[in-house]
Write a protein that binds this DNA or RNA. Sequence first.
DNA 1: ACACCTCAGCTCCTCAGACAACCTGAGAGG
DNA 2: CCTCTCAGGTTGTCTGAGGAGCTGAGGTGT
Lengths: 238, 238
Amino acid sequence: MSLGALRPSSLVDQATRRLREQITSGEWPVGTRLPGETTLAKELGVGRSTVREAVRALSGAGLVQTRQGAGVFVVATEPAEDWPARLRRAAVVHVYEVRTLVEVQAARLAAERRTDADIAALHEALAGRRAAAAGDDAAFVDADIALHAAVVAAAHNPVLTDLFAEFVPALRQGLIDLVDLLGLRHGDGNPGDDTHAALVRAVERGDAGEARRTLQGELDHTLALLREAAQAAGSAGP
Amino acid sequence: MSLGALRPSSLVDQATRRLREQITSGEWPVGTRLPGETTLAKELGVGRSTVREAVRALSGAGLVQTRQGAGVFVVATEPAEDWPARLRRAAVVHVYEVRTLVEVQAARLAAERRTDADIAALHEALAGRRAAAAGDDAAFVDADIALHAAVVAAAHNPVLTDLFAEFVPALRQGLIDLVDLLGLRHGDGNPGDDTHAALVRAVERGDAGEARRTLQGELDHTLALLREAAQAAGSAGP
DNA sequence: ACACCTCAGCTCCTCAGACAACCTGAGAGG
DNA sequence: CCTCTCAGGTTGTCTGAGGAGCTGAGGTGT
């Protein structure tokens, strides 16, 4: 129930809010050097350590950056966009489209850079996907995503790996819904197993073009299913 | 050029890292009460104010929450996905590689979906880039990014637009450094103007393949420059 | 004229100590 | 069983001190 704070928030919180407002309102654009600790303390009517902690909170949020001897600088004006929340709000089709676009190129890079360890991981993930075909929807989707994640990991680009990881939760839910909605996989044996095996083989051979085409084909197919499902469901958004 | 930190990070940063690890590793799951400030100070071998600031940084990042008189509690185990910070830490080459990979596909989509309004915006951005060629480095880079952003916007996928926006700050700094480092543009007139014009024409004509190839060529060229610069600078990563 | 060095003044960083405000749980009392 | 009281531990805040680092002004040498 939470009746809300009866007591005014702490001085540090108040100071943090005041500073944040200066930044988000555009009063202090990116690059601005904040006034010194002692100055801020006097202006805000609080102690120096209070100001330090407020600045530290903003630093943790990624809004400012401190440099010893130089000062505190604004490095961002927005509260570090919450991607998971943003992806939850976005249409599944849009999320999936971007996923396709990222992953297809990742497959190309993977074919060029895969190591022996990557190949072993890919075969293991492929086997895991086959095994999970008999399990429930969630387990199958997880195994499927694990295989795709292994492909992305083989591209050896940490930013790319992070980016894909960001999409996984939204992807997982979307795929579970899709599998459930279309009654896929039940009676179909192990849909896409041959395609996935072909993808792994292409990456293993180092055939970038084939890896790209194979994955593009698979994802386009799923994307088409998603579009159909979205049309069939009409405007049934959350 | 940023030769990376020669000096070990501050004690507060180290303490923050240590505490964050305890949380993200699962050692301290959600709901855990952290040891008291004095205890932590003794365990980490730092002063109480240092611990307080570290906790405040985590609080700003949304990982913990403090309650006066009660203690500090873990409220989330994920680093509250801070992409700007993550991108700042990442190598420029990796960031740029992902940017290429995303944007090239975006160009393809843009060619298929652009509206009349998009075309007008593209021409305006192209003109802006030409005008800014006479200005300073930052202004030119901004105009260049604006053109690329217009291409991405023409793909009409909000997730994609958001994603590109996330990359802009890191991209901007990287490009400014590159232009500054290589002395590009000075005496070169307006480098890449013909390529950019060709890209806009391809999108306008709806020629997806040509748009993709043109942009891929341009970005690969810049990526090659970045790799050279990184090699020339030796191992100067943060 | 240009590059390099020196240095004073400013900034953030860290610590220790003190006191206030507050929460929690144990125990006394009804 | 409920309520009240209270002691101990916790976070909140301030102050003073010294250390480390950056920056720009000014001098020096080429």
